[in-house]
């Protein structure tokens, strides 16, 4: 029974790590160490971005469990906390009840308030519009578009729109807002203003991370990540394209 519980808590930790944006190799490494720390003779962990399989072996029994993982929100604070917990466990295996309590605590890690997040969105959008060669006015236009982007995104998340569809929708709304603003005279280079907002949506980091997974030897995780990020990128471009085709730009 204890072994069953241990594996369940290992899966909980692995799930938090993957959902928060840790690399597959880190998850496998962490879980293996934890299993060994509790005296398992052998620990087999296999992780892809949507699933974790664990089998632990002691001298007289083996336990396997799997966990399906859906949806993720990058949260580095959680990654750090799980990492800290695994360090504690490796140097001194805690009683399983305490591990459970600590996992619950990690799950309740606070995030920045919606206001701060919104400010971060505005900061990213305006600075990348200027960064990619826009004027200050373009930066300002990008800031306003990001405000509307965030509102649409929040609404979409609340009614649980499919993530790919949501990206298309956000892109279309941003495109529309940018075109209206440029026609009124706020900002001038449409593509620079759009890129400021695209940086918030486009999965460039995910694509880089997937390439890294590939080179590290995690072929399946890497391929899954690449396919997913290409799909997302196409969805975003499609959102802008629908608009351009309609207006005939």
């Amino acid at each position: 029974m204890e072994l069953q519980k241990l594996v369940r808590y290992m899966l909980d930790m692995g799930e938090i790590l993957i959902r928060s944006g840790a690399e597959a190799i880190r998850v496998e490494d962490t879980l293996e160490r934890i299993g060994k720390a509790y005296g398992c003779a052998r620990v087999d962990v296999f992780t892809i971005t949507t699933n974790i399989w664990i089998t632990v072996h002691t001298l007289d029994q083996s336990v396997s469990q799997t966990r399906r993982i859906r949806g993720y929100v990058i949260d580095m604070e959680k990654v750090e906390k799980v990492n800290a917990l695994s360090r504690v466990i490796c140097s001194n295996p805690l009683p399983l009840e305490e591990v459970h309590d600590r996992i619950m605590q990690i799950n309740q890690t606070s995030r920045y308030s919606e206001k701060t997040l919104l400010l971060a969105y505005l900061l990213v959008a305006s600075s990348f519009a200027v960064f990619s060669g826009g004027t200050y006015m373009d930066g300002f236009a990008s800031l306003i578009a990001a405000l509307i982007l965030r509102i649409v995104q929040r609404m979409g998340q609340r009614i649980r729109v499919n993530i790919i569809l949501l990206n298309t929708l956000c892109a279309a709304v941003v495109g529309l807002v940018v075109m209206l603003m440029v026609s009124v005279g706020i900002g001038s280079q449409i593509d620079k203003i759009v890129i400021g907002n695209v940086m918030l949506l486009i999965p460039g980091l995910q694509l880089t991370g997937s390439l890294r997974d590939l080179i590290n030897g995690d072929i399946i995780t890497g391929l899954l990540g690449i396919v997913e990020s290409i799909l997302k990128a196409v969805a975003i471009a499609l959102g802008f394209a629908i608009l351009l085709l309609q207006i005939g730009g």
């Binding site: 944006g21 604070e77 890690t109 920045y112 997040l117 971060a120 969105y121 900061l123 990213v124």
Partner: peptide, 8 residues
């Protein structure tokens, strides 16, 4: 800086 905040 902005992305650091978004990534918590």
């Amino acid at each position: 800086l902005g992305f650091s905040i978004i990534f918590n």
